[in-house]
Each structure stands twice: as structure tokens, then as C-alpha cells.
């Protein structure tokens, strides 16, 4: 399985990672060998096997629809870099 330089740039962009142009061949090689490693599983015959959504063969425990969390904005916002009027502030986003 071969990952190209174009793939590496696309993956880095989706993950919002800034990578040096000179490192791209290295990442391409590493990502390719990870995929090759996993690709060994393609040799297993999975005909008739149900896809697995979760390794634990259990189903979800549900919670009752009640409000259990009260307002802790002050404490939660203490860790935020910037806030105003109860809002978290981020660099301006324009659609």
C-alpha cells in the first residue's frame, strides 16, 4: 500500500498539522508501512462474519433523562484562555 506525498498533505491538513515539506517522504514511508502491516488482515476470510462495532459484546447502558449537571461555568472557564460575557473567545471565524 503506497501513500503519496499528496495523501500526506491531505491527511495533515484534515488533522490541522503543520509538517515540513522535507519530512513528507518520511511520513509517506511510515504511513505506508503501517497500512501494509494492517493489510495482512485482508488475508483472513471474513465471509459470513458480522461486522464488529465494539470489542465488548455488550449493548449500551442508558441513563435516565434527568438534569444532573448544574452550572459550573465559573470553574470551567477558569481554564479557558479568553472569555467575555460568559462566552469562550476564539480567533474570529468567518463563514
Amino acid at each position: 500500500m503506497s501513500i503519496s506525498a499528496v495523501d500526506v498533505r491531505a491527511i495533515a491538513r484534515l488533522a490541522r498539522l503543520s509538517i515540513a515539506e522535507s519530512d513528507i517522504p518520511v511520513y509517506a514511508g511510515q504511513l505506508s508501512s503501517i497500512l501494509d502491516f494492517v493489510a495482512q488482515m485482508n488475508a483472513v476470510d471474513t465471509a459470513g462474519v458480522e461486522p464488529l462495532a465494539h470489542p465488548l459484546e455488550l449493548s449500551a447502558r442508558l441513563r435516565a433523562d434527568t438534569v444532573t449537571e448544574t452550572d459550573r461555568r465559573t470553574e470551567l472557564q477558569a481554564g479557558a484562555p479568553e472569555t467575555a460575557d460568559g462566552l469562550y473567545l476564539v480567533p474570529q471565524v468567518i463563514e
Binding site: 467575555a84 462566552l87 469562550y88 473567545l89 480567533p91 474570529q92 471565524v93
Partner: peptide
């Protein structure tokens, strides 16, 4: 709300 910033209400 603040110039140059976007406010986030979650």
C-alpha cells in the same frame, strides 16, 4: 461581542 474574536456558547 469582542472585536476580532468569535464568542462560543456551548
Amino acid at each position: 461581542v469582542v472585536s476580532g474574536r468569535t464568542g462560543i456558547d456551548l
